[in-house]
Structures are given as C-alpha cells and as structure tokens.
C-alpha cells in the first residue's frame, strides 16, 4: 500500500509566485501563504537587445 500523500493529511505549505489573487484567496480562508513577487520576463525583442548591447 503506497504511503499516504501528506498533501491530503497535513496542512499544506503554500508559496505563491506572481499573481496576488491566489495568495489573497488563501488568506481569506486563513491558509498561511508566502507570496513571492514575480512577473514574467519581458518579451524578447532581438533588435532591442542588440541595441542595448551598444547602449548599455
């Protein structure tokens, strides 16, 4: 018999990356959650990146 999944038997430890909405929903249910600020990297524009190499 496989061991019990602790996610089903214990309180989850939650780390939320990015959108605050999910962390807020957990907070409203009194579930502890660590919110990590993260946004997707900016879209890559090869021309701009090449230009940045010349300018910065």
């Amino acid at each position: 018999m496989p061991p019990e999944n602790p996610l089903l038997t214990e309180a989850p430890v939650v780390i939320n990356l990015g959108l605050d909405l999910f962390a807020e929903a957990l907070a409203q249910q009194s579930v502890p959650c660590v919110q990590v600020r993260w946004t997707p990297p900016p879209p890559t524009d090869d021309d701009l990146l090449t230009l940045l190499d010349d300018l910065l």
């Binding site: 946004t39 990297p41 701009l48 940045l52 910065l56």
Partner: peptide, 8 residues
Amino acid sequence: IRKVVKTG
C-alpha cells in the same frame, strides 16, 4: 530608458 527596457 535603457534600464527600463533591459529589466522589464
């Protein structure tokens, strides 16, 4: 503006 574009 260079840093804005570089960092996003």
